[in-house]
């Protein structure tokens, strides 16, 4: 693991409780965010990627509850913090931006009021000075004529503009860590390209670390340094981005890459992953992916593999890569020549 990590998440567990049933949304998630780098978290709906991010900031509401693990930010476990201490961190040292800028901005407040609030809360800056800083921030995120925009309401802005405003709010206090939860999913591709470019530039300028949560492997490839692939509430593979795409190891990661229709190359056919994500009560006790994995043995269904180191800064959770593998010894999960 990297020596310099701004955030270490260890065995994080968040569950939702519904009429006595426990739904394990995040089930022992472990990952590192190296200082100044971007960690991508990729996975399909229900994999627990968003809940992991919300858990870092303790933004989990009833009936959800963080039930275990550690979230170590600059050496201190955030889960031991009081509500008051967390409020000082949110929007200040760690900020978050969300997928849908319309529902995450306050429709009854002007853009200026919402950005000023961050300065007021964390730095005690008044209206006049706050306005100046807000205009500065809007300029930074590339909003034209910010002096005029500052008095407008969110409904007066386009989707791309709203996302820029949200980024301006999030970055107002120059956070050390930005958590971006599907920040471009609701946007058209030409606007997505603008926003991705913006986040990358700001990261360079401010030296921020970023957690980029997305279902889009293209966005991962273009923005991230490290990637955590999640399935069924667990990290199944953690690699640096180049290695992940060149030599994916987990059958789920390989399945994702094989089912992705690409615009940049001609593909004969897509190879889907069979079946669907099992419901929580049908989830295998062993490897969560066993029911959809083409290589799974009986051992896989019953026993949960550990997340083991396979290289420097690379981990995998799969029996195939252990000595206990009792299936086909010759199994090749990934044959690079097939996809190039």
């Amino acid at each position: 693991m990297q020596s310099e990590s701004i955030l270490k998440v260890k065995d994080l567990k968040t569950s939702f409780f519904d009429e006595g049933n426990e739904i394990k949304a995040v089930d022992g998630v472990t990952f590192d965010v190296p200082q100044g780098k971007t960690l991508g978290i990729v996975g399909e709906s229900g994999s627990g990627k968003s809940i992991s991010a919300l858990s870092i900031l303790q933004l989990i509401d009833e009936p959800g509850k963080i039930i275990g693990g550690e979230v170590i930010f600059k050496g201190k476990n955030l889960l031991e913090n009081s509500d008051k201490e967390m409020r000082k961190i949110r929007g200040n040292q760690i900020s978050m931006i969300f997928q849908e800028p319309m529902t995450s901005l306050n429709p009854t407040q002007t853009v200026g009021q919402q950005i000023r609030e961050a300065y007021k809360t964390h730095q005690g800056i008044g209206k006049k000075e706050g306005n100046k800083k807000a205009i500065e921030m809007l300029k930074t995120v590339g909003i034209p004529s910010p002096e005029r925009r500052i008095d407008q309401y969110p409904f007066e802005l386009s989707g791309g503009m709203r996302q820029r405003v949200m980024i301006a709010m999030a970055l107002a206090c120059k956070p050390e860590l930005l958590i971006a939860d599907e920040p471009t999913t609701a946007l058209d591709v030409t606007i997505q390209a603008q926003i991705i470019e913006l986040i990358k530039e700001l990261q360079k300028d401010l030296g921020m670390s970023v957690i980029m949560i997305t279902h889009d492997l293209g966005v991962i490839a273009e923005t991230c340094d490290y990637v955590a692939v999640m399935y069924g509430g667990k990290v199944v593979e953690y690699r640096d981005v180049i290695t992940l795409f060149k030599d994916p190891k987990h059958p789920y990661t390989v399945g994702l890459l094989n089912s992705l229709p690409r615009h940049d190359i001609e593909q004969e056919e897509l190879i889907p992953i069979k079946g669907t994500v099992p419901s929580p009560d049908e989830m295998p006790a062993g490897c969560r992916f066993a029911s959809r994995c083409p290589f799974a043995t009986e051992h896989c269904f019953v026993n949960l593999p550990e997340l083991i180191d396979i290289e420097e800064n690379g981990q995998i959770r799969c029996w195939i890569y252990t000595d206990e593998w009792d299936g086909d010894q010759e199994v090749k999960v990934y044959e690079p020549e097939r996809t190039s």
Binding site: A193, G218, E222, F245, K246, D264
Partner: peptide, 18 residues
């Protein structure tokens, strides 16, 4: 076409940002 992120981190490409 150039705006679509390519799922290949080693592929360098020219992006036209509108």
């Amino acid at each position: 076409l150039s705006a679509i992120p390519v799922p290949d981190p080693e592929k360098k490409k020219e992006r036209i940002i509108l």
